[in-house]
Amino acid sequence: MPSRLLHASRRALRLFRRLFLEGLQKAFDGASCDSFRHWNGCTIPSHSGAIWIPPARSTGWSMPSHHSRALNGVLEYVGRYTHRVAIANNRIVDIEDGKVRFQWKDYRNENRQKLMTLEAGEFIRRFLVHVLPEGFQRIRYYGFMGNRYRKQKLARCRELLGMRQSDTPVKPKEGPDYRDKVEELTGVSLRECPFCRQGQMVCIEVLAPARGIRR
Protein backbone atom coordinates (compact mmCIF):
# COMPACT_ATOMS: atom_id res chain seq x y z
CA MET A 1 0.00 0.00 0.00
CA PRO A 2 2.79 2.55 0.73
CA SER A 3 4.24 2.01 -2.77
CA ARG A 4 0.84 2.74 -4.32
CA LEU A 5 0.56 5.89 -2.23
CA LEU A 6 3.99 7.10 -3.33
CA HIS A 7 3.20 6.31 -6.97
CA ALA A 8 -0.06 8.28 -6.79
CA SER A 9 1.74 11.19 -5.09
CA ARG A 10 4.41 11.33 -7.79
CA ARG A 11 1.79 11.22 -10.52
CA ALA A 12 -0.17 14.05 -8.90
CA LEU A 13 3.05 16.06 -8.55
CA ARG A 14 3.85 15.63 -12.24
CA LEU A 15 0.35 16.81 -13.13
CA PHE A 16 0.73 19.83 -10.87
CA ARG A 17 4.11 20.67 -12.45
CA ARG A 18 2.64 20.56 -15.96
CA LEU A 19 -0.40 22.72 -15.12
CA PHE A 20 1.70 25.19 -13.14
CA LEU A 21 4.24 25.66 -15.91
CA GLU A 22 1.51 25.96 -18.55
CA GLY A 23 -0.10 28.75 -16.54
CA LEU A 24 3.25 30.44 -16.03
CA GLN A 25 3.97 30.28 -19.75
CA LYS A 26 0.60 31.90 -20.51
CA ALA A 27 1.41 34.64 -18.02
CA PHE A 28 4.72 35.36 -19.76
CA ASP A 29 3.13 35.30 -23.20
CA GLY A 30 0.06 37.36 -22.31
CA ALA A 31 -0.37 41.06 -21.78
CA SER A 32 -0.55 40.55 -18.02
CA CYS A 33 3.12 39.66 -18.12
CA ASP A 34 4.01 43.36 -17.78
CA SER A 35 3.10 43.14 -14.09
CA PHE A 36 5.66 40.34 -13.66
CA ARG A 37 8.51 42.17 -15.36
CA HIS A 38 8.69 44.83 -12.65
CA TRP A 39 8.38 43.22 -9.24
CA ASN A 40 9.93 44.17 -5.92
CA GLY A 41 12.30 46.65 -7.54
CA CYS A 42 13.67 44.07 -10.00
CA THR A 43 13.36 44.16 -13.75
CA ILE A 44 12.66 40.76 -15.31
CA PRO A 45 13.60 40.46 -19.00
CA SER A 46 10.74 39.64 -21.38
CA HIS A 47 12.54 36.50 -22.57
CA SER A 48 12.84 35.10 -19.04
CA GLY A 49 10.07 32.60 -19.71
CA ALA A 50 12.11 30.94 -22.45
CA ILE A 51 15.07 30.72 -20.05
CA TRP A 52 13.38 29.55 -16.87
CA ILE A 53 10.50 27.31 -17.95
CA PRO A 54 12.27 24.62 -20.08
CA PRO A 55 14.70 23.63 -17.28
CA ALA A 56 11.78 23.47 -14.85
CA ARG A 57 10.02 21.00 -17.15
CA SER A 58 12.99 18.65 -17.27
CA THR A 59 13.80 18.90 -13.56
CA GLY A 60 12.13 16.47 -11.18
CA TRP A 61 9.98 18.13 -8.56
CA SER A 62 9.64 16.70 -5.09
CA MET A 63 7.30 17.28 -2.17
CA PRO A 64 8.75 18.87 0.97
CA SER A 65 9.68 16.09 3.37
CA HIS A 66 11.42 18.13 6.05
CA HIS A 67 8.54 17.44 8.43
CA SER A 68 9.50 13.80 8.75
CA ARG A 69 12.12 11.31 7.71
CA ALA A 70 9.90 8.26 7.33
CA LEU A 71 6.74 7.36 5.44
CA ASN A 72 4.76 7.07 8.66
CA GLY A 73 5.66 10.65 9.48
CA VAL A 74 4.56 11.79 6.03
CA LEU A 75 1.22 10.04 6.45
CA GLU A 76 0.79 11.62 9.87
CA TYR A 77 1.57 15.07 8.46
CA VAL A 78 -0.79 14.72 5.47
CA GLY A 79 -3.45 13.12 7.65
CA ARG A 80 -3.92 16.34 9.58
CA TYR A 81 -5.40 17.96 6.47
CA THR A 82 -7.50 15.14 4.98
CA HIS A 83 -10.20 14.57 7.58
CA ARG A 84 -10.10 17.85 9.48
CA VAL A 85 -10.85 21.48 8.87
CA ALA A 86 -8.13 24.12 8.98
CA ILE A 87 -8.68 24.80 12.68
CA ALA A 88 -10.77 23.05 15.33
CA ASN A 89 -13.25 25.03 17.41
CA ASN A 90 -11.49 24.17 20.66
CA ARG A 91 -8.35 25.98 19.46
CA ILE A 92 -10.19 29.31 19.22
CA VAL A 93 -9.72 30.96 22.60
CA ASP A 94 -11.48 34.30 22.17
CA ILE A 95 -13.23 36.50 19.58
CA GLU A 96 -13.46 40.11 20.68
CA ASP A 97 -13.09 43.62 19.22
CA GLY A 98 -12.73 42.31 15.68
CA LYS A 99 -9.80 40.06 16.63
CA VAL A 100 -9.44 36.30 16.95
CA ARG A 101 -7.14 34.69 19.50
CA PHE A 102 -6.32 31.03 18.99
CA GLN A 103 -3.83 28.32 19.92
CA TRP A 104 -1.19 27.01 17.56
CA LYS A 105 1.59 24.45 17.86
CA ASP A 106 5.16 25.52 17.24
CA TYR A 107 6.77 22.44 15.68
CA ARG A 108 10.16 24.16 15.63
CA ASN A 109 10.07 24.69 19.39
CA GLU A 110 9.39 21.23 20.80
CA ASN A 111 5.71 21.31 19.71
CA ARG A 112 4.85 23.91 22.34
CA GLN A 113 1.35 25.38 22.41
CA LYS A 114 1.31 29.15 21.83
CA LEU A 115 -1.27 31.88 21.40
CA MET A 116 -1.70 34.11 18.36
CA THR A 117 -4.00 37.08 17.83
CA LEU A 118 -5.08 38.15 14.35
CA GLU A 119 -7.49 40.64 12.88
CA ALA A 120 -10.74 38.95 11.85
CA GLY A 121 -10.12 39.63 8.16
CA GLU A 122 -6.63 38.14 8.28
CA PHE A 123 -7.88 35.12 10.22
CA ILE A 124 -10.58 34.47 7.59
CA ARG A 125 -8.02 34.90 4.80
CA ARG A 126 -5.72 32.30 6.34
CA PHE A 127 -8.66 29.96 6.89
CA LEU A 128 -9.78 30.23 3.26
CA VAL A 129 -6.26 29.34 2.09
CA HIS A 130 -7.05 25.79 3.30
CA VAL A 131 -10.34 25.60 1.34
CA LEU A 132 -9.90 23.59 -1.83
CA PRO A 133 -10.88 25.22 -5.14
CA GLU A 134 -13.91 23.90 -7.01
CA GLY A 135 -13.21 20.59 -8.71
CA PHE A 136 -10.57 19.46 -6.20
CA GLN A 137 -11.08 16.71 -3.63
CA ARG A 138 -9.19 16.00 -0.45
CA ILE A 139 -9.17 12.25 -1.01
CA ARG A 140 -9.31 10.32 -4.27
CA TYR A 141 -9.65 6.56 -4.45
CA TYR A 142 -7.81 4.58 -7.10
CA GLY A 143 -7.72 1.00 -8.27
CA PHE A 144 -10.51 -1.28 -7.11
CA MET A 145 -11.68 1.40 -4.66
CA GLY A 146 -12.31 3.97 -7.43
CA ASN A 147 -15.96 5.07 -7.43
CA ARG A 148 -16.62 4.45 -11.12
CA TYR A 149 -16.12 0.66 -11.22
CA ARG A 150 -15.93 -0.12 -7.54
CA LYS A 151 -18.92 -2.48 -7.50
CA GLN A 152 -17.64 -4.57 -10.42
CA LYS A 153 -14.05 -4.67 -9.16
CA LEU A 154 -15.04 -5.59 -5.62
CA ALA A 155 -17.10 -8.44 -7.04
CA ARG A 156 -14.01 -9.56 -8.99
CA CYS A 157 -11.89 -9.37 -5.81
CA ARG A 158 -14.39 -11.58 -3.98
CA GLU A 159 -14.32 -14.02 -6.88
CA LEU A 160 -10.52 -14.24 -6.80
CA LEU A 161 -10.57 -14.72 -3.05
CA GLY A 162 -13.15 -17.47 -3.33
CA MET A 163 -15.75 -15.52 -1.38
CA ARG A 164 -19.46 -16.09 -1.91
CA GLN A 165 -21.12 -13.32 -3.88
CA SER A 166 -24.13 -11.87 -2.13
CA ASP A 167 -26.50 -9.24 -3.43
CA THR A 168 -28.87 -9.46 -0.49
CA PRO A 169 -28.96 -6.27 1.55
CA VAL A 170 -27.56 -6.38 5.05
CA LYS A 171 -30.32 -6.53 7.62
CA PRO A 172 -30.15 -3.77 10.20
CA LYS A 173 -29.24 -4.81 13.68
CA GLU A 174 -32.16 -5.37 15.97
CA GLY A 175 -32.39 -3.14 18.98
CA PRO A 176 -32.94 0.53 19.81
CA ASP A 177 -32.58 2.97 16.93
CA TYR A 178 -31.33 6.55 16.95
CA ARG A 179 -34.62 7.91 18.35
CA ASP A 180 -34.35 5.69 21.40
CA LYS A 181 -30.74 6.80 21.86
CA VAL A 182 -31.66 10.49 21.68
CA GLU A 183 -34.45 10.01 24.21
CA GLU A 184 -32.12 8.13 26.52
CA LEU A 185 -29.46 10.87 26.37
CA THR A 186 -31.62 14.00 26.32
CA GLY A 187 -35.02 12.94 27.66
CA VAL A 188 -36.65 14.36 24.53
CA SER A 189 -38.79 11.99 22.48
CA LEU A 190 -38.52 12.27 18.70
CA ARG A 191 -41.67 10.16 18.34
CA GLU A 192 -43.89 12.51 20.33
CA CYS A 193 -45.47 15.57 18.73
CA PRO A 194 -43.60 18.63 20.09
CA PHE A 195 -46.81 20.74 20.10
CA CYS A 196 -49.61 18.66 21.60
CA ARG A 197 -47.36 16.18 23.45
CA GLN A 198 -49.94 13.47 22.77
CA GLY A 199 -49.82 12.46 19.12
CA GLN A 200 -47.10 10.27 17.62
CA MET A 201 -44.82 11.55 14.85
CA VAL A 202 -45.13 9.52 11.63
CA CYS A 203 -42.79 9.78 8.63
CA ILE A 204 -44.93 10.54 5.56
CA GLU A 205 -42.28 11.39 2.98
CA VAL A 206 -38.54 11.95 2.69
CA LEU A 207 -37.73 14.98 0.53
CA ALA A 208 -34.76 14.64 -1.79
CA PRO A 209 -32.34 17.60 -1.94
CA ALA A 210 -33.19 20.12 -4.65
CA ARG A 211 -30.98 20.15 -7.71
CA GLY A 212 -28.39 22.89 -7.97
CA ILE A 213 -28.03 23.24 -4.19
CA ARG A 214 -24.71 22.15 -2.79
CA ARG A 215 -24.18 21.02 0.72
Rank of each mutant, 00 (worst) to 15 (best):
K153R: 11
Q137A: 11
G143Q: 10
G143A: 07
F136R: 14
F144N: 01
Q152W: 07
L118G: 04
L132T: 08
V131N: 06
K151S: 08
H130K: 00
G121A: 05
F127K: 00
L132V: 08
F127R: 00
Y141E: 12
R126L: 06
A120R: 14
A155P: 02
R138F: 02
Q137N: 09
M116T: 12
L154N: 14
P133I: 02
M145D: 14
R148N: 10
E119R: 04
A155W: 02
M116F: 09
Q152A: 12
V129N: 08
M116D: 12
R140C: 08
L132E: 14
R140Y: 09
M145K: 07
E122M: 07
E119A: 02
F127M: 10
K153A: 03
E119F: 07
Y142C: 02
E134Q: 07
I139V: 15
K153V: 02
Q137F: 12
N147Y: 10
F127H: 12
Q152L: 08
A120T: 04
R140G: 05
R140V: 15
I139H: 09
R148T: 15
R150N: 06
V131D: 08
F123R: 02
L118Q: 01
M116C: 14
E122G: 03
P133Q: 04
H130Y: 09
R148C: 05
L154M: 11
R140H: 11
I139Y: 11
A155Q: 13
I139R: 08
L115E: 11
P133L: 01
L132Y: 13
R148M: 08
E122Q: 15
G146Q: 15
Y142G: 00
I124H: 12
G135K: 06
Y149I: 05
L154Y: 15
Y149W: 08
L132R: 11
Y149L: 09
A120S: 13
F123M: 00
H130D: 07
G146E: 14
G135Q: 06
R138H: 06
I139C: 08
Q152H: 07
Y142H: 12
N147T: 01
R138E: 01
N147H: 05
E134D: 14
N147E: 10
G121R: 03
V129K: 11
V129E: 10
R148L: 10
E122R: 07
A155D: 13
L128P: 00
I124V: 11
E134K: 09
L115Q: 04
V129G: 03
G121Q: 02
E122F: 10
T117Y: 14
R125I: 01
L128H: 14
G143M: 07
A120K: 08
F144C: 07
V131F: 08
R126W: 12
N147L: 05
R150E: 09
I139N: 06
K151V: 13
L115F: 13
M116S: 10
R138T: 02
F136V: 10
K153D: 13
Y142S: 02
L118D: 01
Q137H: 15
I124P: 03
R150V: 14
F144M: 05
